[in-house]
Write a protein that binds this DNA or RNA. Structure first.
Length: 552
DNA sequence: CGAACTTGCGCC
DNA sequence: AAAGGGCGCAAGTTCG
């Protein structure tokens, strides 16, 4: 069912240009209003140079888009597929590439201090010369050709990536409901009252004194690893580092206060009062997501460390009165993805259980869940430390297809080849330095060792890439499906948070059942779209709660 | 003196 | 024999 495709290009001061098939190009003084009108009347497939140049302003005007193609994100995906992920992806660069002209660089991300203009035209990377509508149309046609020429289902990937970009902007627009008073109370309980002028809280000062006392009054700065290592050395203990898991094995009276200090100092520094002041306003935490910010297709964030919110702070995430949070969390996504990718029948059987690791343990590890998990993680990450080697061997014996799949990806990486996700997202090529190091012959022993190590490192990256990127394919497809479904059946529901394999919806309480049901449908649809007819189950568990901390 | 690197830890 | 994927952030340290 082909539908109208409308190209929109932003201009200065909220104006813009529109190209609707079969109509003369239009210059509109208020692009948001014109797009809103077209969206209502035709629900077209929109084509824009870049989501973040236009959509935040549209959202502030109350406009939400449905179907969408983001030229810059698509260009990024296609460049990676061609083995050239470093080249600029903005519209001006893409059209320059088509015409054999120099490619203008991508603009650096805006600093948060910048006051956002309506369409930020000075940041817009539309071509300086020629008609930007012609440029967008030419690039779009070329992208469609490249998508069709690729054996991978890039059409799905591009649709999911574009929908994800809209969802990301909507999440920033709505914001995650955040109770600053609850957060402040938690900080006060753990650290003591908020000190003036950002000074060290009393609880940390007390712990620092205890640490110094435990070292017999030696000067020691608990924030400086080198200082702590020196203090232990003076006490006759050699520690290779001051990582928490290292210190935990050390028998010394300073260890307990040090571990406590590190934990609380981390909370204070990363998510203390100044974080609260900077990132939470009017009851909302507005993260800035960077769609396509990770080569695997995961999102990154800019500022606020939105994807590293400590679990302890989830208690501050509370639904508004009369509203609820629907928390949808994929259970053990990556091993299931590996089962589906590899077509391993036995692992697929194991994956019918919601607790995959428990059933894997029952199958192969005498019921020892911890061993089963270590074995699976070492297959997907390429690690064999801490006794994981023999466990991985058990896994390889029982599930040769699954383990063979990631080991094949590792060998490809060691050979400098590219690997791809299920939907065709492609790993970056190794650097020239890597090729020089691994490709040369007649090496001395030291270089030889370094060369093998570099190859193994890259193999670990590509081994993990096929799983992580395919999991991102699935999660992004879930998000796109859920977004479309909610617009149809629960339009007042808001997507407010997305973290790799978990999505939060904030909605009126009476809408929760509908949202939860759409979560189920989205998971089923994504599994079918990404993995086709697979026996592997991908549970996406939806919990309806008032407080994020109460989910699972 | 600021830039660049290192360390350590939070999340998945 | 040993071999742990992806990110962001802030403080300390070293570099230039």
């Amino acid at each position: 069912m082909p539908s109208v495709q409308v190209i929109a290009v932003p201009g200065a001061e909220g104006a813009g240009r529109l190209r609707v098939p079969g109509e003369p190009d239009r210059h509109v003084p208020d692009l948001a209003a014109a797009m809103a009108e077209l969206e209502r009347a035709h629900r077209p497939r929109w084509v824009l140079p870049a989501t973040d140049e236009v959509y935040p302003a549209l959202l502030r005007s109350g406009v939400r888009l449905g179907r969408f193609h983001d030229l810059a994100l698509t260009e990024g995906i296609l460049l990676a597929c061609a083995g050239e992920p470093g080249r600029p992806r903005n519209l001006a660069a893409a059209v320059a590439r088509l015409r054999g002209l120099p490619e203008p660089a991508d603009r650096p991300p805006p600093s948060r201090a910048e006051q956002p203009a309506l369409f930020e035209p000075e940041r817009a990377t539309v071509p300086a010369h020629g008609d930007p509508l012609d440029a967008a149309q030419a690039v779009l046609a070329d992208q469609q050709r490249r998508i069709d020429a690729d054996p991978a289902p890039l059409r799905l990937l591009v649709a999911a990536e574009s929908a994800g970009a809209l969802a990301a902007a909507e999440m920033s627009h709505h914001g995650l409901p955040w109770r600053a008073d609850v957060h402040d109370a938690l900080l006060t309980e753990l650290l003591g009252p908020r000190p003036a002028g950002g000074a060290r809280p009393v609880r940390l000062a007390e712990l620092a004194e205890q640490i110094a006392a435990a070292f017999g009054g030696t000067q020691v700065n608990p924030d400086a690893p080198a200082s702590v290592v020196r203090a232990f050395k003076k006490a006759g203990i050699d520690v290779p580092s001051t990582r928490a898991w290292v210190l935990r094995e050390v028998d010394h009276p300073a260890v307990a206060p040090l571990l406590q200090y590190k934990e609380l100092a981390r909370l204070w520094v990363a998510h203390g009062w100044s974080w609260l002041d900077t990132w939470v306003h009017e009851g909302r935490f507005r993260a800035e997501y960077v769609v396509g910010g990770v080569v695997s297709g995961r999102w990154a964030t800019r500022g606020g460390a939105a994807l590293q919110l400590p679990k302890a702070l989830r208690t501050a995430v509370r639904a508004d009165p009369g509203w609820v949070l629907v928390v949808a969390d994929a259970a053990q996504l990556e091993p299931r993805v590996l089962a589906a990718l590899s077509g391993d029948r036995k692992l697929a059987e194991v994956s019918t259980s919601v607790d995959l690791y428990a059933s894997l343990a029952a199958d192969s590890f005498d019921g020892d869940r911890a061993k089963a998990k270590v074995a699976m993680l070492s297959a997907m990450y390429g690690g064999t430390s801490g006794g994981a080697g023999p466990l991985l061997a058990v896994l390889r014996n029982r599930f040769p297809d699954a383990v063979g799949y990631v080991e094949q990806a590792a060998r490809a990486g060691e050979a400098g080849e590219l690997v791809r996700s299920r939907l065709g997202r492609t790993s970056p090529p190794p650097s020239a330095a890597w090729r020089a190091l691994t490709g040369s012959f007649e090496q001395d022993e030291g270089t030889e060792r370094k060369s093998r190590q570099a190859a193994r490192n890259w193999g670990r990256f590509t081994r993990n890439f096929v799983v992580q990127a395919s999991a991102a394919d699935w999660a992004l497809t879930v998000l796109a499906s859920l977004r479309r479904r909610l617009a149809a059946t629960a339009p007042d529901a808001q997507l407010v948070f997305f973290q790799h394999d978990e999505v939060l919806v904030h909605c009126p309480a009476e809408r929760a059942a509908t949202v939860a049901s759409e979560v189920d449908s989205a998971a089923a649809e994504a599994s079918r779209l990404v993995f086709g007819d697979t026996p592997v189950r991908f549970p996406l568990q939806a919990a309806t709660v008032d407080c994020y901390a109460d989910a699972k």
